[in-house]
Design a binder for these strands. Sequence first.
DNA 1: AGCACGCCGACT
DNA 2: GTCGGCGTGCTC
Length: 698
Amino acid sequence: MNPPFYYQIAVDTPAHSAMGGLLSSVLTWSSPSPLSLGAVVRVPLGKRQVLGLVWAECASPHDEKSLAAIKPVAAVLDIGAPLGTAWRALIEFTATYYQRSLGEVAMAALPGQFRILVQKLQDEASQAKIAKRLHGQKAGKPGAQIAATEQGRDHSPRELTPQQQAALTQFAQETRPCLLWGATGSGKTEVYLQAARRVLDNDPLAQVLILVPEINLTPQLEARVQERLGQYACVTLHSGLTPVRRMHNWLASHRGEARIVLGTRMAVFASMPHLRLVVVDEEHDPSFKSQDGARHSARDLAVYRAQREGAPILLGSATPSLETWAACERGRYARLTMPDRMGGAALTALRLVDMRLAPKRSLLSPQLMAAMQERLAAGQQCMVFINRRGYAPILHCGACGWKSACPHCSAYRVFHKRDRSLRCHHCGWAEAVPRACPDCGNLDIAPLGRGTERVEEDLGALLPPGTRVLRIDADSTRAVGSLQQQLAQMHAGEVDVLVGTQMVTKGHDFRRIGLVAALNVDAALFSSDVRAQERLFALLLQAAGRAGRDAAASSAKSPELWVQTEMPEHPLFQALRQHDFERFATQQLTEREQAGLPPFGFHALLRSEAQSQEVAQAYLNAAKEAAADCEASDQVTIYPAVPHSMARVANVERAQMLLESASRPALQHFLTQWQPALHRIKVKGLIRWAVDVDPQSI
DNA sequence: AGCACGCCGACT
DNA sequence: GTCGGCGTGCTC
């Protein structure tokens, strides 16, 4: 009998070892025969069987005790080739940079269906069955839902505008990551597709990764890819796919069969053995930053991955993130500029309404209503954007002051008139609207503020009878396909006025919209969130881009973006008026440099959750004390522990502590040193804690 | 995270 | 006398 081989295998056991660190989730198993690094395996762990990834070979342990604990690997999942060196490097980088265990990151990056297969099939113990499900070969049907490859159709390139051609040429010559800074309607998508075509045409194995911020944007880009690059197999990866389908698409990419992978942030972890081009569309979008588990930025990881694998990367946006913009200024990234809208479409004009002069508590100013009526009379459509769904954000009793607070969260429940409910948008707690004030019995309880439902109602009352108002938000689009159906109604001209949340500002071209109005934007101007203004600028410019793509074609009045504000003199609006992102970015970056904020300083948050605020903060305070002994702690400022801005959600109190450093490597080094101490701290009643590197908001 | 073991209150 | 509450602790 030959001596067994020993391997370090990554498994999902958060904080297994009190040592913490990268390898805290890597344990040792044996195998009678050699295994490939990157092989996906099933291993016994305690009483269960779990998914594992072979990470490294290791020597037989010398001490008897740990040798006795080692069990053999139970099975190897046949996924074709093992996961490659580059993929494993991406996982290792992610785990290190975002301070998570290797196993957690690796298991989250693999299709969830793998875990289910391991559990389902362990009693059947049939390798053949596992193989069959992995390949999905039932009666000759192809496993992956790969878009049909049509050889016959004409997929010849579309003629590019000179600025598109220039951007493409420059991109082909660049070795640095490239920002494609293109106005809304300048044709960024066509540049992505041509760049992809070049790569795919020249290399029969080449694969292209395209990331989009939202699942809602995949169908239309998929259609464009199908139309322009239909001869190449394309798969999507996003949370809307069934687990089995996602696994098949993932495997198609892993095997190199899918030449184009199109997806949301999860797609950055697709195994792509022949990755030759990465595109990140709307790179500034906050959705690229994961808000659960390992809080990674898919955009930043895409940049790392592309550079690591020598693939060119194109980051597209009309309003780039200030991080990306600063990287261009420093020459780390190249900037490709496309200022002109295609077909010479007119720039949307900004109209500011000074709400200090409007009647108190009115939301729709008379000027805005008059302008909308004018547009409607001219046969144009209007869009009203308000980032609040429901009827009113608060229900309020005028007699005793009762407000519709959520019993489980530090938030108010939103009044939804449609189903007469009070709903908490944070924990989901819902109740029927009380007939009278629950505290004093007063019958006269009133909605406070406005959401999409109420704006829809107001518009119905204020606009001429017969005006067709449609509302699009998370509530109206709950059913599958309803978003597409509602958008189609809008395109078909069956709607005069569209009311919606953020959802409607992204990606959809409504050619007949002449006027876009943004309501209730002032909160962002006064927010303490460092990125609030950046997000508002992007949102408003994006909203402006929804209007007037056809304006040049008709003799109609040029398109307008209406913003109602109590601070029309704010510099953000002055830059927005000129569609001058550069001016806005320069001004913001100057402020951030002076304040040492990103991208001039670097942040991490230590977050904690407990039944009480005291316990949550006690953990953070203990962590702060332990920090003094860590290397590089002199280069890191640790701020006092404070309650999270939404302190309680679903009866859990949340606290956080900000860390700041002028040096990214110093912060990284410090965090790595700190990690074991964080694991060692025991505070009674603590539910969980986590480090969030490069937090989106603080 | 699971899933054990383990040590104290209300049931057949 | 057992069923079961969830408090600590381990998983190669």
